[in-house]
Nucleic acid binder design. Structure first.
Lengths: 199, 199
DNA sequence: CTGAACCCTTAAGATATCTTAAGGGTATTT
DNA sequence: AAATACCCTTAAGATATCTTAAGGGTTCAG
């Protein structure tokens, strides 16, 4: 088996964890997703472009972020193995995006275009549920994050991040985590010191 | 035409704005949604219960919020006419919810149970897309909110709220808006004063 | 109609978080 | 292997936001 097919097996395993797939559905999935390798610091999506793909991460890690007029980055989302990422607004509206998706580590991704996704939706109704569930899960996660943002201190949000994403926490530089939490990296450093001293 | 049917027309108009519906689909929608009237301060969902319905607001306004151990409320979402609200986590997992949905104004809502929604999904595949799109739109909105929360000052977030939800802004008490923005109502008061003086 | 509950504002002092600056460590690129 | 870019930490002073307290206006329920 070549490596391309092997990478797609992770996608198939992921998709069939919610619904079992027929042979025909599997065949279509394999045909419609395109594999790409992204170097560290390579862009999957760049501000000003239209987001033309829904992306599944096979290996590595991506970050999705916005940049403010002063040039500061704000991390909206990390996507590591088995996770989906896309700027849904640009993807469906076909308007230029305001955000970036960039590889933090060398990564392998699988992508489907909007047209092919719509083709899947109309010809294999099951995929409507599959992608509805994918979005619903991401929605629940985002809602928890909003609740944290409006109710918890920076220290609480950091501890929650460690609990919720232990693997990411050990993989990512603290600067990236601080940007995700909405604090400066200097302040995260102080939080870490305080936590360490208290234990 | 009786009032119950009239209320459901708003739902039908809403649903068919994305996809046109067949007579049969319309008939099912009308049959599967139940109408309820909620008094001001009445609960649509209470912490500890399982969220058994997906709710569409016909008139009035609901708020969805969490309460922390100290008793403070944090508004996750407002839902006025033509909007959907539900605790998706509890709705799909059938686990007890940690949150509240409460009427801020006397409201009329239409609700569908999880079982009936699943029935709709399996028998009328179109509704998979409809609800997928509903969630996608809410996802995009939440993502913008997270970006605001991690990148903007309280004053910027307030001005953005006024821009994005002018109707809500004039309808809701400032205490509720402050809770949504993640600030105290005293601080919102100061922000409003500063903005007024600057203009 | 009236008391109770809620809402808005103001202000003073406390706390959380940011900014700037600097130094040393580590990883990446040349 | 050197040079560069990145990363982490510390600390001092600045700013944003919270807490508490108080007073007056408005709405709601009895």
């Amino acid at each position: 088996m070549n490596e391309g097919i092997k990478n797609k097996e992770l996608l198939l395993a992921h998709m069939s964890s919610a619904f079992s797939l027929t042979d025909k559905e599997i065949e279509e999935l394999i045909a419609l997703f395109t594999e790409r390798k992204i170097k560290r610091r390579g862009f999957v999506l760049h501000q000003g472009d239209v987001c033309r793909h829904f992306t599944f991460v096979v290996s590595g890690c991506l970050k999705m972020y916005a940049i403010d007029p002063a040039g500061k980055e704000y991390n909206l989302e990390f996507a590591a193995e088995n996770e989906w990422v896309s700027d849904l607004f640009s993807f469906y509206s076909e308007k230029p995006t305001g955000i970036y998706i960039e590889a933090i580590e060398p990564s392998v991704i699988l992508q489907i275009t909007r047209q092919n996704l719509i083709y899947l939706y109309s010809n294999y109704p099951k995929f409507n549920s599959t992608f509805r569930i994918i979005i619903e899960r991401k929605y629940i996660e985002l809602q928890n994050r909003v609740l944290q943002n409006i109710s918890a201190t920076a220290e609480e949000r950091y501890e929650n991040f460690l609990d919720q994403f232990p693997a990411l926490a050990s993989r990512l530089p603290n600067t990236q985590i601080a940007s995700y939490l909405g604090i400066t990296s200097e302040f995260l450093s102080k939080i870490r010191k305080d936590l360490a001293q208290r234990r």
